[in-house]
Nucleic acid binder design. Structure first.
Length: 855
RNA sequence: GCGGGGCUGGCGGAACUGGCAGACGCGCUGGCCUUAGGAGCCAGUGGCCGCAAGGCCGUGCAGGUUCAAGUCCUGUGCCCCGCACCA
């Protein structure tokens, strides 16, 4: 939503009529103007001998205003981009807009504004915010997914998917959100509710839909998770669970005669065929077609089954599926276990899901907890067929107190398979099924094909045509894009708005030229975000989605940064898209993203910021009060980036104080003699105060470099710079008294500007200029430290007696262990602590500590 | 139930490979400067005892390994996130 204009209280410092005040508004405005005058400032180099680095933050939905989560995300990415520039990389750092989607339609209804107008206005507003925050984006390759020059390539990809058999149309039960009035992908259903309307249960509807065959890549998507060592383990595991690969066996149970159109066989799926001699019933999902067949002749059963179906649906909707009490009903029929020829009763049970496996299971109460619970309730036979490996095979447990469910056992009571280990039994029994033709090995996935049809207006039109003569016909490539018409009346009722636009709907068949109708559904917006980051590298290509050679240079993305909420949806779809493009020969990389970083949420008063709770902090207000640098620096300082950040207004004030301290140090100690950076002089004869500053300076460069590169602990980077500034302030008397050479002050100032440059770019640039430097700080080399100058002359060694701190001794940095030990023992407090006791052991950890063990 | 992360002062957080727990910042207390201070500067600030010197206790809890444990091991509690009748 667009930000309403609230009167913003003036920055507190502005009331201070002091020439030394740090005025972020003045400084930041000055640099904004300068940076805007050079649009190529942040542009990636097309031909470069430098190593490349592609750093990317997840593109926002243009809701109208940035929130603090965006600011944090982009502050991290921007710091990294700037750091890599300073380290000599050719950096690609783009930004764009995930700009199709339902909120634009909702806003259209509410404000009577066309979605396009609303969206483009929001983009303009948010771009202003981003520029005000000083993020170094290469706007020349901006991607806006709702514009035809982008979405035409969605359509182009769709045609390619269709040609490859990876896009298909199918009538099926789909998830329908009654508030969005559209279909949702499985990935967009959260606990049975719509992902955007968490209180709205998803309904099931039968509709003709377009699907993308992501399941073709299910195995590879799973396998290649191994390659993604630069991804958080959490995300890899979430994807692994989502894909849900499971190896098992299909086994046919014969019903001994046809019941109806669904046939005379029940095929069950099991991962534990080794337990099949213990199967004492077959359980069907209430929605299983054979249940419908049987029930059609038995009205009583029909009613009971309907109840089970209703119950299951309700449980799914409330998210309680998994906790409902198991119950079921006997169908009156029996099915034959093909291994032992035994006929077992066929039941319908509410804990069997139609959309996993075959919707039918064999029930083995002795070796499955769920089956055990069910069998106990209905007094079904519990037959033991696996014994724990350790126990005596002679010993027969007739009534197991609990089912034994692990594979670590021996098969018993299973005819010729008795005596085998579970794994061997699975192999041999599956082979038997294949040999006899009553079953086979199979792999089941939890992941389903991706339904992309949406009955909404504001999305990419699906480029397909329906002809009475030729059926479903793809739009010719040369006729792309199929333009999304403007001025479409939008309601949230009655299906696809495009169906009500005759100029759009009516077309001619690409094949026969006769009258035909266009597809009126649009694509899921996750299609847009599945490949947008490729377009950045070649954003103005009008012959192809991108040039393959350019992609080969930039990909994979070196660092992708965003919220963990995209761990499944966006990040699995875009992996699928990359694999499809690779198989098309369009890209060479198997994976789009080499390293992924998921930053923590921004919370306030212990809760996620939300309008309902009224704990939202507006970036605009923060920038107006404290400046962009302070807002950015605080979002990096308040917590390490992977953890949740608890926003505290008093914290950002502290950051502003710090920036003011830095600024005043420069202001009070103008050093304009030297021009551009030059190596620090070797300052041999320094006062102790000067030496302390010099040492701290080099130690700080070391620490910041280390924490930045290796760990991304921006909070400790900033803390280190604060320490340096504190050191300088505490030496103020020495500075004003002339005991610190000008050249050292100049050196410190240059380095402080450099160290701050990635995180607080406005002030850093101002300070850089104040030192007299004329080069562009953006690409100034990251500072290096001199180990000799960073070294301490003397070190303080804690001395423990029996592991407890008893004294501190100061020794020269180069002291030998013996000297340190002597100094430790000579210490008065240590003497007192060991007086009258016998020294058992002396431990000297070089440069760290001494521990004297006494008795 | 399974998986991932977390638990350190009044608060946000430091302590990367076992080696001075509490860096840095906020808050608080005191002082300086000032017509004024919601500006700036300086100092103090884990708890308990003590005038002090100093002592004891302290990283969710209980054990253990070690000269030495926030860090390693065993057990356990609580919080957050994800998945969940997946056969």
């Amino acid at each position: 939503m667009p930000q309403e204009d609230k009167p913003i209280p003036p920055a507190r410092l502005e009331r201070n009529n002091n020439d030394e005040r740090y005025d972020p508004q003045r400084i930041e405005q000055k640099w904004t103007e300068r940076w805007q005058s050079d649009p190529s400032l942040y542009a990636a180099e097309a031909h470069s001998t430098k190593p490349k680095f592609y750093v990317l933050e997840m593109l926002p939905y243009p809701s109208g205003a940035l929130h603090m989560g965006h600011v944090r995300n982009y502050s991290i990415g921007d710091a990294l981009a700037r750091y890599m520039w300073m380290n000599g990389y050719n950096v690609l750092h783009p930004m764009g807009w995930d700009s199709f989607g339902l909120p634009a339609e909702n806003a259209a209804i509410k404000n009577n504004t066309p979605p396009k107008q609303w969206t483009l206005a929001n983009i303009a507003a948010m771009k202003v915010q981003m520029k005000r925050l000083g993020f170094a984006y290469d706007w020349s390759c901006e991607v806006t997914t709702c514009l035809p020059d982008y979405y035409r390539w969605n359509q182009w990809f769709f045609l390619k998917l269709y040609q490859s058999g990876l896009a298909y149309r199918k009538k099926s039960k789909v998830n329908w959100c009654p508030v969005c009035c559209t279909v949702l992908a499985n990935e967009q259903v959260v606990n049975g509710n719509c992902w955007r309307h968490e209180d709205t249960p998803v309904e099931q509807r039968e509709l003709e839909q377009w699907f993308l065959r992501i399941t073709k890549y299910a195995d590879e998507l799973l396998r290649d998770l191994e390659k993604l060592q630069g991804w958080p383990e959490k995300v890899r595991i979430m994807q692994q669970n989502w894909i849900g690969r499971s190896e098992g066996t299909l086994v046919d149970f014969d019903l001994g005669g046809t019941v109806g159109p669904a046939g005379s066989t029940i095929t069950v799926f099991t991962t534990r065929v080794d337990t099949i001699y213990g199967a004492t019933s077959v359980q069907l999902a209430p929605e299983h077609p054979i249940v419908a067949d049987i029930a059609s002749r038995h009205p009583d059963l029909r009613a009971q089954v309907d109840q089970l179906i209703a119950e299951q649906r309700k449980a799914k909707e409330t998210g309680d599926i998994g906790a409902i009490e198991k119950h079921g009903v006997f169908t009156g029929r029996y099915a034959k276990n093909p291994y032992n020829g035994e006929a077992v009763p066929v039941w319908v049970a509410n804990y069997i899901l139609m959309d996993y496996g075959t919707g039918a299971i064999m029930s083995v109460p002795a070796h499955d907890e769920r089956d055990y619970e069910f069998a106990n309730k209905y007094k079904l036979e519990i037959r033991l067929v696996i014994l724990p490996q350790s126990s005596d095979p002679e010993e027969t447990m007739v009534e197991p107190p609990l089912p034994f469910t692990t594979k670590d056992g021996i098969v018993v009571n299973s005819g010729e398979f008795s005596g085998l280990s579970c794994d061997d039994a699975i192999k041999k029994m599956t082979a038997r099924a294949e040999e006899k033709g009553f079953g086979k090995a199979t792999v089941t996935f939890r992941i389903k094909d991706w339904g992309i049809s949406r009955q909404r207006y504001w999305g990419t039109p699906i480029p397909m045509v329906y002809c009475d003569k030729d059926g479903v016909v793809p739009v010719a490539e040369k006729d792309l894009p199929v333009i999304l018409p403007d001025n479409v009346p939008i309601t949230l009722a009655g299906g696809s708005p495009l169906a009500g636009v005759p100029e759009f709907l009516n077309t001619t068949c690409p094949k026969c030229g006769g009258p035909a109708r266009r597809e009126t559904d649009t694509m899921d917006t996750f299609v847009d975000s599945s490949w947008y980051f490729y377009r950045y590298a070649d954003a103005h290509n009008d012959k192809a989605p991108f040039d393959s050679a350019t992609i080969a240079y930039w990909f994979p993305i070196d660092q992708y940064i965003g919220g963990v909420e995209h761990a499944i949806l966006h990040l699995i779809y875009s992996r699928f898209w990359t694999k499809f493009m690779r198989d098309m020969g369009l890209v060479k990389n198997d994976e789009p993203v080499a390293r992924l970083f998921t930053q923590g949420m921004v919370i306030k008063d212990g809760a996620k910021m939300s309008k309902n709770l009224g704990n939202v902090v507006s970036p605009d207000e923060m920038v107006a009060r404290y400046g962009a640098d302070a807002a950015r620096l605080y979002s990096l300082f308040a917590a390490p980036p992977d953890r949740d950040l608890d926003w505290q207004d008093s914290g950002i004030e502290g950051i502003q104080r710090f920036l003011g301290r830095v600024y005043r140090f420069f202001l009070r100690n103008p050093v304009k003699k030297s021009r551009d950076p030059e190596p620090a002089e070797q300052l041999v004869m320094l006062s102790s105060e000067a030496r302390a500053i010099q040492r701290k300076l080099h130690q700080t460069i070391k620490r910041v470099s280390h924490d930045f590169q290796g760990r991304w602990h921006f909070n400790t980077c900033i803390a280190a710079i604060m320490e340096l500034v504190n050191e300088i302030y505490s030496a103020e008397e020495a500075i004003t008294g002339g005991r610190v050479p000008n050249s050292l002050i100049a050196d410190a100032q240059r380095n402080i500007a450099l160290l701050l440059a990635p995180m607080a770019p406005y002030l850093a640039h101002e300070l850089w200029e104040m030192t007299g430097a004329t080069s562009n700080l953006l690409k100034a080399p990251w500072p290096k430290y001199d180990p000799a100058l960073a070294a301490e002359d003397e070190i303080e060694i804690p001395v423990q007696v029996n592991g407890k701190l008893r004294g501190l001794v100061v020794v020269p940095a180069g002291a030998t262990d013996d000297q340190v030990e002597q100094a430790a023992i000579a210490n008065e407090k240590v003497k007192a602590a060991i007086a009258g006791k016998q020294i058992v052991k002396k431990i000297v950890v070089p440069k760290k500590l001494v521990n004297i063990v006494v008795r």
